[in-house]
Nucleic acid binder design. Structure first.
Lengths: 342, 342
DNA sequence: TTTAGCACTCACTAAATACGAGTGCTAACG
DNA sequence: CGTTAGCACTCGTATTTAGTGAGTGCTAAA
């Protein structure tokens, strides 16, 4: 259990360190206006805090920096929630003024806003496959051998793919298949498509048409492509401005991670409700062991749609970022809710 | 005019420098197997080459590095074309083995292959707006107030957007408008859409329907979104492995450039036929003044479709990259040609 | 024309020194 | 007993100095 004074000191150290990125000494804390203690007293407390694991010393004769445990305590107990600076609110209001007419546009827009406001990297996961169901499937021929398969989802998202029509399959057969797919797959969640396609429907289709196998393959490949394109990154270069990443090696490992969508998605998977904060090693990926990741899921009518995340150094403006994310995820729910049809 | 020996020396220096990224001294050239001259002789020639502007000296007591002019001469006169190393061919063959069923998939695939093969950054511009025409337009209602507008292009590319239906517009009117748009805009190149929309068709539409303005706006915004999503980047992080970019500042300015699609596209605009090589300051953008950009346009049936590019340090494996690009752009034409319908 | 020889340049490295921010400990103070 | 002034000590960083070596330019000889 920390005393009130220790909490104050820990809080002050984190605030200063977030700003300066350099170890904080006892004197600079003592000089703060609202602190009535000498450097010596602060030093004693700092020594205790270090012993308890909330602070670290880069080397013997340096000031202290917060440990992961220190950040964790700060986030859990010292942060007063919900206060957003007025100029942040203003710039968001300004940015939301321009109307976006496309679902993915909103998501990208939010990602851009987050990264430019915070100077960290923002990662936004688009609507998740779980809650997405098929609304409509259609195949439009382009030439004798090619067609465009179009899948319209309930979220308004449209997936399309140019496909090759199997040799010798007449248009009438294609239409038959499309009809069957339409009636049987409507409102089926994306994740269940594959099993449903192979287990239930292939039998039924075989009664009506030949060569349905190829078409099923087509549809499935359309679905597979659905996994990508759902990660929106913004402000990658912001990483480069952080002093902790002046070393190219570290940046490279992080960028490599960001370029690889699957790993990135794995980072997010246990996305519960609300805001989640992973500090340093808590997110179990070596490359970002000195980064923090703050994620917020957004949902409509109770069903989770996706996640927005901010990746920055552990030395992060937690209060501000959390405030922004709360606000933005709420706003996203509002805007996306209109498209969702309520 | 360079003597044969000078050309040999210039070529040798560039070859070595490309490999080592360090200034090349006279002795190391002299030691090469096929060179029968002493370091002193080489030095004299190097001194002459420097005076002519083909070489540079980082400082007095260092070896020489190629200047932009030197690279230019190398590319223009010393490079023997068309020889591709067999293992490059093999890895490409292997990578092309997996079938891609989507137009943009091919493009991204090629971009990935280029960057992983060369260890530079690849930039691919998708099919250009000039040669793209409308094949089909359609509006699918999702709810009372929203619909998905779908535009199918002749290239097989599909652009879609969720749009809000203007208050009080009945379905029948929407259908009327769509019909008119379909008959009048079919086969119109994308670039001419805007003028055609406003000049010719708005009159005609106003006879049949009210509120056509909103719908036109919708269609136009669909078209505008066509400009983006057409730049495919791959291997950005490869930049970080190049020794010339160990300085974070330089990397940042390049990444900032790459993140901004419009500037990037501007880089490519004067895309003639065939392969184009811009060395250093030749591409007039400060951030990449010590980069080279090699671009190749690919076309089908004579009409240019897009451009693939490789961005790397001026110290680049010109011969190999050019060979790869020639091969890949040809292959892309082949594969894309199938979709284009011959 | 080519080459050996040699003095010279200059970036880079390592060791030596100085500096100073910051600590830990002790003793005195209220 | 908590707080604080004083002080020796630590150790990273910056600065200086000297040394090293790769590479050059020039000259004179082959």
């Amino acid at each position: 259990m920390l005393t009130e004074r220790q909490r104050m000191i820990l809080s002050a150290i984190i605030d200063d360190y977030v700003r300066s990125a350099e170890p904080i000494g006892s004197r600079s804390i003592s000089k703060r206006g609202n602190v009535g203690f000498s450097p010596a007293t602060i030093r004693n407390e700092m020594s205790d805090l270090e012993e308890m694991g909330y602070l670290e010393q880069p080397h013997t004769s340096a000031g202290r920096i917060p440990s992961h445990k220190g950040y964790r305590y700060y986030v859990d107990h010292l942060l007063q929630h919900g206060s957003l600076h007025s100029h942040d609110l203003d710039s968001m209001k300004g940015a939301f003024a321009e109307r976006i007419q496309e679902m993915e546009g909103v998501i990208q827009h939010v990602a851009g806003m987050l990264s430019s406001l915070t100077n960290y990297t923002s990662i936004v996961l688009g609507p998740e496959v779980f809650s997405t169901t098929l609304k409509h499937i259609q195949i439009i021929p382009i030439s004798d051998t090619t067609a465009v398969a179009i899948l319209v989802m309930n979220t308004g998202h449209v997936e399309n793919k140019t496909v090759t029509i199997p040799e010798g399959m007449p248009m009438s057969e294609i239409e038959k298949v499309v009809n069957i797919l339409n009636t049987r797959l409507k409102n089926v969640p994306l994740v269940q498509f594959k099993s449903k396609l192979y287990n239930e429907i292939s039998n039924e289709l075989s009664k009506y048409v030949t060569g349905y196998q190829e078409l099923l393959g087509m549809v499935e490949s359309v679905l597979q492509s659905d996994e990508k394109d759902r990660v929106f990154l913004s402000g990658m270069t912001n990483m480069l401005t952080q002093p902790e990443f002046k070393d190219v090696e570290k940046v490279k490992s992080i960028f490599d991670l960001l370029e690889e969508a699957p790993t990135l998605i794995k980072l997010f998977t246990p996305s519960n409700e609300g805001i989640e904060i992973k500090i340093g090693a808590e997110n179990s990926i070596e490359a970002i062991s000195n980064c923090s990741l703050i994620t917020a899921s957004y949902s409509i009518a109770g069903t989770p749609l996706g996640t927005i995340g901010i990746l920055g150094p552990t030395r992060m403006e937690y209060g501000r970022v959390i405030g922004l994310m709360e606000h933005l995820s709420k706003h996203m729910e509002l805007v996306l809710g209109r498209w969702y049809g309520k």
